[in-house]
Design a protein around this nucleic acid. Structure first.
Lengths: 201, 201
DNA sequence: CGTCGCATTGATATCGCTCAAATCCGGTGG
DNA sequence: CCACCGGATTTGAGCGATATCAATGCGACG
């Protein structure tokens, strides 16, 4: 199944992977577990979370279709967070042991993987930069500018507004209000699940 | 000079690198420049920044001795931020072209590099998680827990308190007050440049 | 039809930011 | 040796933006 694997995966590696369904609420691993696999979301959604001292859930990452997660745990002994399925789907499970073997022996694979990691790093830096903005509207603007379509700043809302608010570390109420304000000011335009950036200021 | 290079760098690669001094205020590259090199700080400090619409400086990363920067730009065409030297030191410059060649041809090098990137990714995730905390004291606690020495939660303050505040996206005044509060409450202990976590709550 | 979760709006509280000012410290030049 | 200066540190006061609490409508789903 070509769709399940990135093109650069060697066929021998593909044979050791597992592909299976994930159900909402299922936990793939917990904070502290020994690292046994890295994953790629084929369909559905996985959230990587950690729990604060007060029991509050801290969202580290949301992985959607096509995205890896726990990929940074390759060199670690144990997982640094907990993975929970938040939307039913399909999951590709890649055993670390075999994965490491290929990384060490196949230079073109290792190269492709390094490119992949570099891309993830850049994406995370964007999110980091976004979080460092204080204003809610600044974050929305930044999202449209960095994650939106080239030039047009058009974005398909990733799921519910509530989930989007969580990804940007905003209370969902604040996001509602902010979007209303911005639309009222003519900064953005909303058409159902599509957000468009209007004036380029 | 063994100190300048990570141990896994092939000697042929080392020969194409440049080692030179950097002065405070010097800019290594700007947002939008074509990617020509990745860097490693031997001594001193480099900050990766980006400028907001209001002209405000957004700190993306602070790289100190031993750290790489722009390493995620390997697969990119142009730099996504600006690099400024904030403390005099020495810089290792690694041309991307040669670097790529080695990545593609030397699997053990590529593997080591992938490990390096994975580590960077984990470090950035920690910082990201920290930023997602709302309270100032939560951020300080998180810093001590994740960046501090194992168990003891002991930390050498990275430079000035002001710089530390910037790294945690806090106003420096807020950090001063928070540290005072925390010390008064017996949560932490300060001895000059050393912060120690006391009660493990 | 009842329930659950998302969307939306209102009211209030809180925490960190901003502006301001005083002190301290290291370095520099006379 | 001392006066001066810039930057870090510290403390104070007040504001504002966001979180929080609360209530309602709405659509999907069993």
């Amino acid at each position: 199944m070509e769709d399940f694997f990135p093109s650069f995966f060697p066929s021998e590696l593909r044979q050791t992977c597992r592909i299976g369904p994930i159900r909402k609420g299922e936990q793939l691993f917990h904070l502290g577990d020994n690292v046994q696999a890295i994953y790629r979301v084929v369909a559905g959604e996985i959230r990587l979370v950690r729990y604060g001292a007060d029991g509050g859930e801290i969202l580290l990452h949301r992985a959607g279709a096509g995205e890896y997660f726990a990929e940074a745990s390759l060199g670690a002994e144990y997982y640094h967070c907990t993975a929970i399925c938040t939307a039913e789907g399909t999951l590709l499970t890649i055993p670390v042991k075999v994965f490491r073997t290929f990384l060490e022996g196949d230079s073109s694979f290792a190269f492709a993987w390094a490119m992949e990691l570099a891309g993830n790093l850049r994406a995370l830096r964007r999110r980091f930069e976004r979080l460092s903005l204080k204003g809610a509207s600044d974050r929305v603007l930044h999202y449209l500018l960095t994650e939106g379509a080239e030039e047009t700043g058009e974005v398909h809302l990733p799921g519910s507004l509530k989930a989007w608010a969580a990804e940007m570390n905003l209370a969902h109420e604040t996001l509602y209000r902010t979007l209303n304000d911005m639309e009222a000011r003519g900064l953005i335009e909303r058409q159902g699940q599509i957000l468009r950036l209007l004036g380029n200021a």
